[in-house]
Simulated scan of single mutants.
Amino acid sequence: MLSILDKYILKRYLATFSLMLLLFIPIGIMVNLAEQIGKMIDNEAPLNEILIYYLNFTIYIGNLLFPIFLFLSVIFFTSKLANNTEIVAILSSGVSYGRFLRPYLIGASIIAVLMFFMTMFIVPSASLGFNEFKFKYLKKGKQDRITTNIFNQLNERDFIYVSSFDPARQLGNNFTFERFDDKNELEFKIAAANIRWVEKDSTYRLTSYSKRTIKGDTALIESKRRLDTLFPFKINDLTQVSYVAETKNLYELDAFIKSQRRKGASNINTYVLVKYKRWALPLTAFILTIIAVAVSSVKRRGGMGVNLAFGILVAFVFVFFDKVFGTLAEQSGFSPLLAVVIPNVLFGALALYLLQNAKR
């Protein structure tokens, strides 16, 4: 059963967090609208798509800033409790600091469950709509995927390569398709100046086509100026959009990562990093809550302003570490798991240190 103290702090915790979301997300929408309205008008974005975009924007940005809003809201209302000497009265009545912390951890648990559910199942759909609108109307003409030197392993035997790919025209240049036998020896190789998906006929059109088939010590060469044929892949398998992992829910992302590992995707770390970050987000809620309570539960000469300033500094340092290690994982061989674990371990240690000081 929750005591009066638990209900009092938990109510303030959830109410301040909700108020923070209601105050800052509309401001974010207004700022984004002011920046992008010209592009929306120039590219003739329909009103209904704009409304759906801002619904997706609310979910996408809200999830992105969840930890920061949580952190600042806990600092805000706990500082008010400290300035009103309510915390001194609570602790003087015989309540231990650990008991005082309990409603905060209950609140963090509620937020963590909400964050987990949203991140795994709701945000991916919003991310898809958000990014599709962005590249259709706000970044029109800009590429949303890798378009040069694309190598992909379709399965254990088949490999494809194009030197460049134009998603708008569904055209790839300098195309090769290689198949290996069970002994890992080349069975045949198809090469073409370009490959184009012909949607009307549901076929691939190869220009300057040649096929080299290996049979023992003999190589058979076949060539044609143009050939319409079928392949065991979709044209978009040549390259995925840069935000593809963000658009997949918990189960879809696991299946997608497995398929990309099987294909030998070069940017697999990017997808794995998204997965680990999702799982770590609820843990982040607890770490930031403990840091916020430890920092703001002590009454300071500068009042709430000092606590908020320190809180904002810690929040930005956390984001900085998260981005640095995330970039390392995406652009080098650094482990995605370590990229997620290291910032949380560092700030978890900081949380324990600050908590011990606050208890004293």
Rank of each mutant, 00 (worst) to 15 (best):
A168M: 05
R169M: 07
R169W: 00
Q170G: 03
Q170A: 09
L171F: 04
G172K: 10
N173V: 00
N173W: 00
N173C: 00
N174Q: 08
N174H: 04
F175Y: 07
F175D: 00
T176A: 14
T176P: 08
F177G: 10
F177W: 10
F177Y: 15
E178L: 12
R179L: 03
R179H: 06
F180L: 12
D182G: 14
D182F: 10
K183A: 12
K183T: 10
K183P: 03
K183V: 02
N184C: 13
N184L: 15
N184M: 13
E185Q: 15
E185R: 15
L186P: 01
L186Q: 05
L186S: 02
E187Q: 10
E187H: 07
F188S: 07
F188Y: 14
K189A: 03
I190C: 02
I190S: 02
A191H: 05
A191W: 02
A191L: 10
A193F: 08
A193G: 12
I195W: 07
I195A: 09
W197R: 05
W197P: 03
V198Q: 06
V198L: 09
V198E: 04
V198H: 03
V198G: 01
E199A: 13
K200D: 07
D201C: 05
D201F: 03
S202W: 00
S202A: 11
T203W: 00
T203I: 06
Y204M: 03
Y204N: 04
Y204R: 03
R205F: 00
R205I: 00
R205G: 01
L206S: 00
L206F: 01
T207E: 06
S208H: 15
S208K: 15
S208R: 15
Y209S: 02
Y209F: 07
Y209K: 02
S210Y: 01
S210A: 08
S210F: 01
K211Q: 13
R212S: 15
T213A: 11
T213N: 07
I214V: 13
K215G: 13
K215D: 15
K215V: 15
G216S: 12
G216E: 12
G216T: 14
D217I: 09
D217S: 15
D217G: 11
D217L: 12
T218R: 10
T218I: 15
T218D: 07
L220H: 12
L220W: 02
I221Q: 08
I221P: 02
I221K: 11
E222W: 02
E222R: 06
E222M: 05
S223M: 05
S223N: 09
K224R: 14
K224G: 09
R225V: 13
R226N: 08
L227K: 11
D228W: 01
D228M: 05
D228A: 09
T229Q: 06
T229K: 05
T229Y: 01
L230C: 06
F231V: 01
F231Y: 03
F231H: 00
P232I: 01
P232S: 04
F233W: 06
F233M: 08
K234C: 03
K234W: 02
K234N: 12
I235W: 04
I235E: 05
N236G: 08
N236C: 03
